[in-house]
Simulated assay, not measured.
Amino acid sequence: MRPRVVCGIAAAVALFATACGSGDGGSASITAQPAPAAGYPVTVADCAGKETTIAKAPTRIVTSNAASLEMLLQLGAGDRVIGTGFPPGKGTLPSALAEQGAKVPVLGDKAVPKEKLLGSGADLYVDTFGAMPMMGGGATGPSEAEFAAAGIQHVYLLSTACAGTPKAAKAPRTDLAGIEDDIRRLGAVTGTAARAEELVTGMEKRIGEVRTALAGVPEDKRPSYFVFDFDAGTKQPVAVCGRQVANAVVTQAGARNVFADCDADFKPGSWEDVVAKNPDWIQLSVRNRGSEEATRKAYDDAEAFLRSFPATQGLKAVQEGRFVRLGSEVTTIAGVRNADAVRQIAATVHPDLVKNGQ
């Protein structure tokens, strides 16, 4: 994670919307519920291939941020989550999950402090990021030995934790298989494998419908596409590169990410780079502001900037008003709703072929 984009897309990956806000997260407590006993032990690996064996279903889970929290809520294991870092901002969770998500105690408005995490009483920590300095202060998280001493097993969402590491695949990410694998893996770890399969099946159905609708569109006829992270600031744009989840979302939606060829997840860019790419479509990517009115204003502000900024006002997409209004949270963060983002983008850039993008 890069400090310069801590309020933008990279922050959305880290915090799902609120590290730039001041939410207190509340003080609600959650009683751990009985977990399933079948299907264990389960063995999972980290980005380097180091394996962790889960002997029984966890009953007290801490999540590093709202991305892994939402995945657990979707899986039906939310009643076992006793705390999170980077809590979900108001309006960012699906309405069906919002009430339960709001009850999860916040252990850190940014990263969970090391001492608080180790003393939380958790038996599982679900980490969206992987081994890196923890966001919000430069301190590192617990070592694996410290996790073990506290009785906490440590697992990762590999689709995001590995994206910026040397172990990541060099080729651009073009499908959602890694995200689906994370859902299945977390389902196995929490004893909710059946629900995980339901979620993945639903994702594959939605994406498959888009893929079928766009089957006749040749690669070279698919429009070029730039994800504009308005919340990162306007002085220097951020390139969403080939390893990022958003590259897969854009590709599956029948478009071509203009920065797919940079071998990273995110990379500082320049407006000169964007002008040289002259994208056919621009996604106005903003964080949910907590209300439809406030979020709409953020989209309006992002569009107004592109229309008034000398470097961008002449771009093809700006001149023709080809904007996609779609939030950072569902585009750049691994989750079930990536499939919905695929459909929404496809319905916007290929309106004659894909319907009902909302």
Rank of each mutant, 00 (worst) to 15 (best):
R185M: 05
L186C: 07
L186I: 13
L186P: 04
V189Y: 06
V189P: 07
A193S: 10
A193E: 09
R195F: 00
E197T: 02
T201I: 07
M203A: 00
K205I: 02
K205M: 05
K205W: 07
K205D: 06
R206D: 10
V210Q: 06
R211D: 09
A213L: 11
A213D: 12
A215T: 14
G216L: 13
G216A: 08
V217A: 11
P223Q: 09
Y225R: 07
V227Q: 10
V227S: 02
V227K: 03
D229Q: 08
D229I: 01
F230I: 09
F230A: 05
A232Y: 04
G233S: 13
G233Q: 14
G233C: 12
G233T: 14
G233N: 15
T234F: 08
T234E: 12
P237Q: 13
P237Y: 12
V240D: 09
G242W: 07
R243F: 02
R243D: 04
Q244T: 03
N247C: 06
A248L: 05
A248G: 00
V250P: 00
A255D: 08
R256I: 01
V258R: 02
V258N: 02
F259K: 12
D261K: 15
D261Q: 15
C262D: 15
A264W: 12
D265W: 05
P268D: 15
S270A: 13
W271F: 14
E272Q: 12
E272C: 03
D273G: 04
V274W: 03
V274R: 11
K277A: 14
N278W: 02
P279D: 14
P279F: 06
W281I: 00
I282R: 09
Q283G: 02
S285G: 07
